[in-house]
């Protein structure tokens, strides 16, 4: 297992390098001069020329990449062209907000999916199952941006329970933080909740037909024990795959939701930086996002072995 993990970690390096090259080239090929964008309506050519030299944008593309990657390998991701903030600092500053939103959405999604998915598998074709199936259909069909606006319209504007957007840090005011978190978390969780719910249900139904389930029941175990201890653990493998990918995709997943609710996380930083062609920030966000995705897939693979002892990465059956 250790060897497997070490091999996977080593493989991440060329993938990450490739990601940086692709993003670097694509950004430079995309239309729009970052300095012209930042200058906005005040485009003083003399000031622009001075800034171009200061930011090294007057150099050739390979020169710029070598300079960037050399610094990046030493932990210096450069400064934002737009805000002058060190890129690493800007990511670290926004990471807590994104993680908070992502984890809250994930917890909401997984908890409800597990409970409702299990209940609808156990009570197949019951009104609850039909309701859950309807919800999953709506959940995967409703785009984030539409659901977000709908929630704002109903819960912020009509009923006025939750704020329509913005963020209050946890350390500043816990209650305000939670109030601001609820709508974006529901928005972000809904689609994945629907997928997870469906996955739990179908995976459980498949497990229910296995021989060991019949044996468990034949032993006279209570139905709850049969479902929770025997069926659920075995049904979790495909669910873990999906949830693992969702963990890795927290940053990308939050992009739209953060925009709708003005949530100051990495997703919003990514959108603002892409719109502004803020090369160093986009490169860093994509790199962090790619690394987190690769790390989460590795963790999922390791979890497989824990959940199903039949899976082994050593080449021998355990």
């Amino acid at each position: 297992m250790t060897q497997y993990i070490a091999r996977r970690l080593l493989l991440m390096l060329p993938v990450a390098l490739l990601v940086t090259i692709v993003v670097f080239v694509l950004l430079r090929l995309s239309p729009g001069d970052p300095l012209v964008i930042y200058a906005g309506e005040e485009r003083d050519p003399v000031a622009l020329a001075a800034l171009r030299v200061e930011y090294g944008l007057d150099r050739s593309m390979p020169e710029q990449y070598v300079s960037w990657i050399t610094h990046a390998l030493q932990g210096d991701l450069g400064r934002s062209l737009r805000t002058r903030q060190p890129v690493l600092e800007s990511i670290v500053e926004r990471l807590p907000a994104t993680l908070e939103l992502g984890i809250a959405a994930l917890l909401l999604s997984v908890t409800i999916a597990m409970v409702v998915g299990t209940l609808s598998a156990v009570r197949r074709n019951s009104p609850l199952d039909l309701l859950a199936t309807g919800f999953t259909l709506a959940g995967v069909s409703l785009p984030n941006f539409f659901l977000g606006l709908l929630l704002i319209l109903v819960l912020s504007l009509a009923i006025r329970i939750f704020p329509p957007g913005g963020y209050t840090a946890l350390r500043e005011d816990v209650w305000e933080n939670v109030r601001h978190l609820i709508l974006p978390a529901i928005t972000l969780a809904t689609a994945s909740m629907a997928v997870n719910m469906r996955q739990v249900r179908s995976s459980l139904l498949e497990t229910f037909g296995q021989d060991y389930m019949r044996t468990a029941r034949a032993k006279g175990l209570r139905e709850t024990t049969v479902v929770v201890r025997h069926a659920l653990k075995n049904a979790l493998i495909p669910v873990v795959t999906i949830v693992g990918l969702q963990v890795g995709a927290i940053i990308e997943g939050a992009i739209i939701t953060e925009q709708i609710f003005s949530w100051p996380g990495i997703g919003k930083l990514a959108v603002d930086s892409i719109n502004g062609r803020d090369y160093p920030v986009v490169q860093a966000v994509v790199l962090v996002s790619a690394l987190s995705f690769m790390a989460s897939t590795l963790i999922v693979d390791v979890l497989y072995a824990w959940l199903d002892p039949r899976i082994s990465y050593s080449g021998q059956r355990s």
């Binding site: 606006l149 704002i152 912020s156 504007l157 006025r160 704020p163 329509p164 957007g165 913005g166 925009q259 709708i260 609710f261 003005s262």
Partner: peptide, 18 residues
């Protein structure tokens, strides 16, 4: 001062008293 780029969200914040 809260930066909110979406004009609908800005307006809603005023309407809700936030």
């Amino acid at each position: 001062v809260k930066p909110i780029t979406n004009s609908d969200t800005r307006f809603t914040n005023l309407r809700t008293g936030d």
